[in-house]
Structure formats: structure tokens, C-alpha cells
Design a protein around this nucleic acid. Sequence first.
DNA 1: CTGAAAGCGCTTACAG
DNA 2: CTGAAAGCGCTTACAG
Lengths: 335, 335
Amino acid sequence: MNITIADIAKIAGVAKSTVSRYLNGGSVSDTTRLKIEQVIKETGYIPNSFAQSLKAKKTSIIGVIVPRLDSFSVAQTVTGMEEELRENGYQMLIINTNQDLSREIEALYDLARQKISGIVLLATQITDFHLAAIKEIGIPVIFHGQQHPDVHSIIYNDYAAGYEIGRYILSKGHNRIAYLGVTEQDVAVGVERKCGFQKALKEQSGATAQFYESGFKVAAAVEAASTILDGSGQRPTAIVCATDSIALGVMKAAHMKEWRIPEDLSVTGIGGYDVTEVIHPGLTTVKYQYAAGGRLAARHIIKLVHDERVDRLTVLQCELIERESVDNKSIHRLY
Amino acid sequence: MNITIADIAKIAGVAKSTVSRYLNGGSVSDTTRLKIEQVIKETGYIPNSFAQSLKAKKTSIIGVIVPRLDSFSVAQTVTGMEEELRENGYQMLIINTNQDLSREIEALYDLARQKISGIVLLATQITDFHLAAIKEIGIPVIFHGQQHPDVHSIIYNDYAAGYEIGRYILSKGHNRIAYLGVTEQDVAVGVERKCGFQKALKEQSGATAQFYESGFKVAAAVEAASTILDGSGQRPTAIVCATDSIALGVMKAAHMKEWRIPEDLSVTGIGGYDVTEVIHPGLTTVKYQYAAGGRLAARHIIKLVHDERVDRLTVLQCELIERESVDNKSIHRLY
DNA sequence: CTGAAAGCGCTTACAG
DNA sequence: CTGAAAGCGCTTACAG
């Protein structure tokens, strides 16, 4: 393992620079090429990429900072990103911050120290510390999932997603709706989706909604939903959820109370996780193309690394998927 | 960004070696320390980790080779691994091979070239090429999920999992059972689990089972299950599935045909994915501690990197979780 | 405590 | 086509 280019050169009876030239596709005579090739094969020589990078002053590694790995959206995004990166000769270094914002900042500096070529940050919140770090490290960074005017960003159209799902649920005649969202600190998921929904609500005279908040995990949603369903006031006919995970939690809470879906309660999600298609009843939701989003982020960061122009902001569209979790209240039932 | 230790030294009026010593916690006088600290702060100096690694001849990066990222088990495993690695000052470089075995071999060499300290391979199949590569690169490698006597391995007790689930389903009075497994090329999932199940079967006189094979994905399982359920022969009262994903597919197929679970068909999985708890009815399965397995793999690879002793083979136990997807045929129903 | 010098393994002009 | 030499940015004995 400790064979260096000098060893190869000595054994092959040539100069180091010749070996290096061979390695990098420079012109070498057939005889020396054959000789070098053989020695490399015999010795099992593997170039030391540090030394290479030390000269080249960069790696072909893209850093990806994620808040967690065990989430459908992140896993899909990262999968798409990895494929695109690999196809373009880049590797992916994943840093999982476990939802710790300060760790995101650290990660930014860490990656810079390692002369990563570029960074994609799957953001949940953007703070001044983020912006300061990005400015200081001076390597290309892309936000994915959240946006900021100073940084290249790729987002999903969360506002449209909320709006579509709102229009849909209202078109089905629901007017006692509970909206189960998440913290407003998450602009994309907590604010945009809700605002989109509210816009739909405003357009429909006579419709009202109650707004609630849940954590991101299924267990938190189960709890939040139980509170809503046990509520003393008017019971909602539908719960609109900011994410599919939350919708899953709501469905579970409903099952536990033996409410039927959609007869007793309609439920919608946002995200389009695979599992929403598999469960019964299938969940009506808005599908996000996470893998495609990941690929796009990869393509953009590669362009930035090559100093090519990239749109400051890219908005990815999404699509309503109608399944069986919403009851139609606007037609008269036969029985 | 191009500030080097030499710049710091010049500005601070000291030698490079002094700066280096400061950086590495060597003894420096208070005055020079203060001076250096200030210059570093002013310039925003970030050490070049290539140069560092070039001397140190190693990184603190562990490579993790995975067949895919968008799977519950992989995501959990990797999450656990990343936490343990980070807590010990290591970073994780993930390579996703997208189920392509030859890419696993490439990845092994790639990682070696980058002087990764160690490698964890989430294996599905082990070939001679793997073994040859591992021998050649000469850095520590751990198999996770599959075993081989020549390589440090961490596996789950797949045989016991199959056995437990077999005993359980038999104890519930099922005797027309379909076992829906996967390719035997995957020793852990395709062979071990099935053999465990078969052992349970042999111990119970009069019980028989039909064996079928499915792909790993839900969609493949839906198809396989449809074939079983439409079969001309005796219909099974239970389908035992080699993974939770397959069980999810079976449940979906059953719903599509309006078979009730568990009344018309019992279903079991193996894996213990989060979603199996959330769906209705809850899936009876065998829970694998994926995150803990990932942490353990991380701990082991770190030990190997430090030349410490590690058991050649570690077998992780798992636990039956009884939920609502299995009917009890051995009691007389009241109606 | 501090500094000059050599070296980690590679690449890159520059001569020949 | 080939080789000698300098240099990438850092660390590490070795003197002082």
C-alpha cells in the first residue's frame, strides 16, 4: 500500500515525471508505457489522491448536508443527487446534522477545509450564521428545499401544493376543516404550504378552518390528531396535513378511535411518499419529485463549480394525486 | 481562501513550524499564541486538509458502500453509523452502487485511492471479486448484513427471525401457508430467513407451505401476491414474507381484491420498519435494530482502524413483534 | 519556546 | 518522448 510514484519510476527505470505523465494520459512511448503498465499491475500501485489534490487544489467531491437521513424525502433526494454526481465523476460526502442547526454551520466550515468542490444544503431554516459561513468559505453552495435571495436555491412549489390541496378538499364539499401544519420556522413546509391552503380557503366563501401544529414525526402527529379528534368543538370532516408523515399519523389516530377513512374523516398529505400509495385507503396527496430535485441540485452545483451560470432560483412543480382518503360531501349519498 | 500557513507565519512574524505547533496544540508562548490567533481570525485561515493528510497518510473518513439509499433498513443503518462515526471524529463518505455489484468493487478501489481509513460494505452478495479487492487494498473492511469467514462481519440473526415467525404463525393454527421470499443469491434474506422458517415448519407435524419468490420492491410483491391469491390450488390462510416491504405489497394486493386482513388472510413481515406500526392493521413482524447495527459497525470499523481486536463475526438478535395482521385459527370463533 | 530544513507523493513547466 | 527540479501546504524531528 505504500508504493509511490517514485517506486514505480525506479522499478520501471524511468523518471517520476514520466510515470506521472503516463498516469495523466500524456504522451509516452510505447515501450515505456508497456513497462510502466506492467510495474503498476505487479505492484498494485494506487495513486495517493491527497498528493494529487494538493496540487490540483480541489477534489471532485460534493458535500451534502442533510438534517436527517431516515426520511423518505431526504433519502430520495440524496439518491437522485448521488446518481447525477457519479455520472459526472463526482463523489458525495454526506453530513447528517441530526436537525442541529449549529452543526450545519460547522459542517460548512468542515467541508471547506477539505477542499470540497461544492456544497448542497438540504435546508430547513436559514440563519445569518449560514449566510456568513457561506460567504466566508467562498465555495459554491446551493440551498435545496428552502430559498434565500443571496444563495442559489432550488425549492418545490410549496405554496402551490397547499393551494391545490385546499382547492381540492373544498371542491369535495368539506367546510369544517382542520389544518395540521408544522412550525413556521420552516418556511417551506410551515409557512408556504399553509399560506397556499389559506388562499384556497379565502376564495371559497363560507369555508373555515382551524389551524393546528404538529411535529414532523408520525408519533407527534398521532398525538396532535388525537387532540383534534377528541376536541370539544365541532368535529372536522377533513384534516389537511402539511406532510405525508403527519397524514399517516392522523390516519393511525383515526383508526385507533375507529373512525373510518374517508367516511368519518377525510385526510390529505403533501409529499407523495411511496408508502401513501401502498396503504389502505390510499392517501390523496401532492407528489414532489424528490429524486428529480436531487438530480437537478447536483447538476446545478456542478455547473457552479465549473463557473457556469445557473438560475438563482429554481422552483419545481408538483402534482395532486387523487386517491381514496377524501370523501365527497358535495353529492347526496343514496343511503 | 488561499491563505496558507506560510502567510499566517509571515504576518504574525513567526515561523511556519510555530504556527503548525499552535494549530496542533503544541506548546507556544502566550504572546505568540495571541498573535497567531488574531491573524488566523483576521484572515479566516482554513488549514488545507490534503496537506495534512499527505503527512498523516490517512484521513478520518470511513467509506460506506450501500446498494441503495431509499430503503428503510439502509437509511436507519446509515443514520446510526453516521452518529457513531461523528461522535468519534470520523466522517462518512457514502457510495451508492444502485444494486450494481461491479460498482461495489470499483468503490472499494476508489475509496482506497482516497486513503479512506476503513470501509463498511452493506452487502447483498459476496463474490470472489469482493474478496480479492479487499485483500488488495489492504485497509480494514467490514461486511454488514452478510458474512464471510475471511472478513469481519456483522449480521442479523436471519435464521432465528425466520424460525420465530414460522413458529408464531404455526402456533396460530395456520397450516396452509405461502412463504414469499427473495432470490437465494442474497444469502441473509433469501436463504437464512427461509431456512429458519422451514425449520419451524418441520417441527410441526401436518403443516405444509408453498414457496414463492418476489423482488424486493413493493410493486414486485404486489404482483407476486396477486398470483398467489389468484392461484387455482388451495388458497393460503397466511402469507409469510421475507421482508416488510414484501408484506406491504401483499397487504396491498389483498386490499385490491377486497380480502380482509387478518380475517381472510394473515400476513407477516421481517424487518420492523416504522411504517408497519402505522398502517392498519399493524403488521406482525420481526424487528431488526438497524440503527444500533449501524452504530456497532461504526464502532467496529473504528477499532479495526486503530488495530484493535474485533470479533470476526457479530450476530445481532431480533425480536418478534405481535400486532394485528395474523388471525388466530386455533380457537373456535363464537360466530 | 522557537526556527530552519527535510519530506509527505504528486504535478508541472522547462530543457533537452 | 524524457528527465531534473521546483513546488503544492503542511508536519516533524532536530538544534538552539
